[in-house]
C-alpha cells in the first residue's frame, strides 16, 4: 500500500517552487534580522506545504480513487497518505532551511535545536493539510478552499512554533520542552482524528 502512493508527480515542481520563492525573497531583502527571518521562514513553509500536500489528493483521478478503494481499507489509505506527505514535507523543510540560511544569512544560535523544530513544524503542517486536502478534494474545489479551511486551524500551531523558534535564536532563552510535547500531542490527535473521520469522506 505504501508503495502505491510513492508516485512522484510534482516533486521537482515543488523543489523549483521553493528555490524560486526564496530567490525572490533574496532579491527583495538582504540579511533580515532574526525576527523577520523567522516570520518569513514559517510563512514560506506554510505555502510550500499547501502546494506540496494539496497535490496528494487533488490530483488523484476518480478511477484511481476507485482502484485504491477496492484494494485498501480507508484507515490504511489515509495513514499511507499521511506518512508519504510527512516524508515529503520533512525533505522540503530541510531543503528550504538550507536555502534560507544560504541566501538570507544565518541568525541561528542553536542550529540543531532549530533544525529539530523545523522538522517538527513540517510534520505538523503536513498532517493537518493532508487531512484538509482530503476534505477539499471531496468538495471538488481547488487549493483555494484548502487555504480558507486550513489557515484558522493552523494558526495556533504556527504561533507555538514561532515562539519556540524565537527561543532558538536568542542565546539566553531555553526552549521550553512542554511546548514541544504539546505540539507532538496535537500531531498525534490529528492522526487519530484523520483515521476516525476519513472513512466518512471516503464513501461515495
Amino acid at each position: 500500500m505504501l508503495l502505491e502512493v510513492r508516485q512522484q508527480y510534482s516533486f521537482y515542481g515543488i523543489i523549483l517552487y521553493i528555490g524560486a520563492t526564496i530567490f525572490v525573497l533574496y532579491m527583495a531583502i538582504d540579511e533580515p534580522e532574526a525576527k523577520v527571518w523567522n516570520g518569513l521562514f514559517w510563512v514560506i513553509q506554510l505555502f510550500i506545504c499547501i502546494n506540496a500536500v494539496a497535490k496528494s489528493f487533488l490530483q488523484e483521478s476518480k478511477g484511481r480513487m476507485l482502484y485504491f478503494y477496492s484494494i485498501a481499507s480507508p484507515g490504511d489509505f489515509v495513514l499511507a497518505k499521511l506518512l508519504f506527505n510527512t516524508v515529503l514535507m520533512l525533505a522540503m523543510s530541510l531543503l528550504s532551511l538550507f536555502l534560507f540560511s544560504l541566501f538570507l544569512g544565518n541568525p541561528m544560535q542553536k542550529i540543531w535545536q532549530f533544525t529539530g523544530l523545523v522538522l517538527l513544524g513540517g510534520w505538523s503542517l503536513s498532517l493537518v493539510f493532508t487531512f484538509l486536502a482530503a476534505i477539499a478534494a471531496k468538495a471538488q474545489q481547488n487549493a483555494a478552499i484548502m487555504a480558507v479551511l486550513g489557515f484558522p486551524i493552523i494558526i495556533p500551531q504556527l504561533l507555538l512554533l514561532m515562539r519556540l523558534s524565537n527561543a532558538a535564536f536568542a542565546p539566553l532563552l531555553t526552549i521550553p520542552i512542554s511546548t514541544v510535547l504539546l505540539l507532538v500531542a496535537l500531531d498525534a490527535m490529528v492522526i487519530l482524528l484523520a483515521v476516525i473521520l476519513f472513512p466518512y469522506l471516503w464513501k461515495d
Binding site: 515562539r163 496535537l186 469522506l201
Partner: peptide, 26 residues
C-alpha cells in the same frame, strides 16, 4: 452534510485545545 460534518468535528477538536492553551503561553 457528510463533508461539512467531518470538517466541523475536525476543526472543533483542533480549536478547543488551542483556545485553552494559547492564553496560558502568551
Amino acid at each position: 452534510a457528510r463533508i461539512s460534518s467531518v470538517y466541523n468535528i475536525f476543526a472543533y477538536a483542533m480549536l478547543f485545545p488551542s483556545i485553552w492553551i494559547l492564553p496560558r503561553v502568551m
